[in-house]
Amino acid sequence: MSFNNLDTLYRQVIMDHYKRPRNKGIIDEGITVDMNNPTCGDRIRLTMKTEGDKVVDAKFEGEGCSISMSSASMMTEAIKGQTIENALKLSNIFSDLMQGKEYDEEELDLGDIEALQGVAKFPARIKCATLSWKAMEKAFKED
């Protein structure tokens, strides 16, 4: 697949998550973290329910750009059913991806999250993409 076709596909995945976000809403009982990006005005409320060391549900509400909101949608999809430890590992891998670092695709399939790798080329947008991930890290590191 050519670079232009791949770029177009990634843009479509991002816009799909933006226009039809997965896991939009609030979990009444569970962990709640509010975060914002004062640079651009993105804000998110992440709510998660855990049982033992497993994330059984994750939802978000907020306002922001397509990168911020689609990243939150992708992140909540990715962490549901994961252990907290694996969710935090995934966050570290995503952080590396945002810094332009490679990851082993055979070891880990990032699914739709891979569509955000192009954000690394735009340093001003990295905070948009990582907002929900930082909220998840904050929740589990304070918990």
Rank of each mutant, 00 (worst) to 15 (best):
T47M: 03
A58E: 15
V55R: 02
Y18Q: 04
D16M: 01
E114C: 13
A72W: 02
I84T: 08
N37C: 03
V119D: 07
A120R: 05
E61Y: 12
D96K: 14
D96C: 03
E137V: 11
A129T: 03
E114W: 13
F3L: 15
R43H: 09
A78M: 14
S70F: 10
G52D: 13
P21I: 06
L97T: 11
I31S: 05
E85N: 07
D143K: 14
K127P: 00
P38R: 01
G41A: 07
D112Y: 07
I31G: 00
I67S: 03
N86H: 13
G100D: 07
G81D: 02
C65T: 12
Y103C: 12
M69L: 12
T32D: 07
S70T: 04
M75V: 02
W133Y: 13
E85M: 06
T76V: 00
M98C: 07
Q12K: 12
S70C: 11
P21Q: 02
K121N: 12
M74T: 01
G64T: 15
Q82V: 14
G52W: 14
I44V: 15
T47P: 07
I126M: 08
R43P: 00
Q82F: 12
D96G: 09
N36F: 15
G62D: 07
D143L: 11
D28C: 02
T50C: 14
D53A: 10
K49H: 07
